[in-house]
Write a protein that binds this DNA or RNA. Structure first.
Length: 229
DNA sequence: AATTAAGCCAACCGCAAAAGC
DNA sequence: GGCTTTTGCGGTTGGCTTAAT
């Protein structure tokens, strides 16, 4: 009963990928496209589980990855989107071509959080901090984050409950970045970019601020409409 | 030079949703 | 309709690198 493991763990490698493994994966995907991750390792001659292959490809080997430092504009986009979406890294990544959800998540946790703290802003709620926090080490942040209720969407749920929403609503159309188009993808599944855009609707106390950001970055959001107050 | 602390990021894990049968 | 399998996401961890002492 229950789910079977995604792979036979006793026969799979773990840990860092070797150059040879990378090359095998690249070669296979260049020929066959990505997808079918379950069967890919065997077909590609890799002693890895499918999940591991998928992660390696998406986060590291994909040829359309930008890599390198985040720009100030990207910083601001991430902050704006996080204000709206919370820890929906895949959705945020979908708006940042060449960036992966993992990369953005790491960048958020290591850079942006600290930046916001230093500005007296709570990175989860995007509201001013009640008390200044002094401990910002990796360890402390991990511990505090795990101890806190860490609702990934606190700005969309908990905050709304604790702080009655203002009468400003925002609708946001999330178009998805077609990062998979780089390969001929025979996989009918997992093509997020082929789905119809998802419409998010919620209230935000910072709508006024967000509206300014949006109007200054129209290429990020296809459309937004403040609802009538 | 050695040790410790902090920063960073690739990779793993568990879960939920979607898809397939 | 229900069960199983597969995929994708978000949280977390391990280990490497760099900075500080």
């Amino acid at each position: 009963m229950g789910r079977s493991p995604c792979c036979e763990k006793q026969h799979t490698n773990k840990g860092a990928w070797t150059k040879e493994e990378d090359q095998r994966l690249i070669n296979y995907i260049q020929i066959h496209g990505d997808g079918c991750w379950r069967s890919l390792p065997k077909a590609a001659g890799l002693l890895r589980c499918g999940k591991s292959c998928r992660l390696r490809w998406i986060n590291y080997l994909r040829p359309d990855l930008k890599r390198g430092n985040f720009t100030a504009e990207e910083d601001q986009i991430i902050i704006n989107l996080h204000t709206l979406l919370g820890n929906k890294w895949s959705l945020i990544a979908a708006r940042l071509p060449g960036r992966t959800d993992n990369e953005i998540k790491n960048y958020w946790n290591t850079h942006i959080k600290r930046k916001l703290y230093s500005q007296g802003i709570d990175p989860q709620t995007h509201r001013p901090l009640a008390n200044n926090r002094s401990s910002t080490s990796d360890f402390d942040r991990r511990r505090e984050d795990s101890n806190s209720n860490s609702s990934s969407n606190s700005c969309l749920t908990t905050e709304v409950e604790e702080n009655p929403p203002l009468n400003l609503n925002l609708e946001l159309s999330i178009g998805l970045h077609p990062h998979n188009q780089i390969t001929k993808n025979p996989n009918p599944k997992g093509d997020d970019h082929q789905k119809a855009p998802v419409l998010f609707k919620f209230c935000s106390p910072q709508t006024e601020l967000e509206t300014q950001h949006f109007s200054s970055t129209p290429h990020i959001f296809r459309y937004y409409t403040p609802s009538p107050s």
